[in-house]
Amino acid sequence: MIRLVPNQSDSIQRAPLVDFTFNGRIISGHMGEAVFTALTRAGVLHLRDAPADGAPRGAFCCMGLCQECVVEIAGNSVESCRQPLSEGLAVLSVTRGKHG
């Protein structure tokens, strides 16, 4: 089929893969990419539950505004769209405030 917009996905070179964990599950991603892009590639879209109604939520604005992709790393709330991935990073879903 004729493509006016060629598929260039094979001509993209990426940094080496490293392992990290999300809620204990081992996932690989490219060193230095945003945590959320590594999770998205692995098919992990459901990052946390909304505190008020428990509904599943994932990355939305992808630019550090909406706070939907916030995860917990070393006890801190971190926007996974702005957090670079490093080897062994332990990423958890935020469960704060579920009691309310």
């Binding site: 892009t37 879209l45 599943p56 994932g58 990355a59 939305f60 604005c61 992808c62 630019m63 769209c81």
Partner: peptide, 30 residues
């Protein structure tokens, strides 16, 4: 930033902003 008209199900994981998609694709080329 982007205005996204709320619709049923827009909070589901897998729904991202249109501008958000450009941000994702420009940074991660995916």
């Amino acid at each position: 930033r982007e205005f996204v008209q709320p619709i049923p199900g827009w909070t589901l994981p897998g729904v991202i902003g249109l501008a958000g998609a450009t941000s994702l694709m420009k940074q991660a080329l995916m």
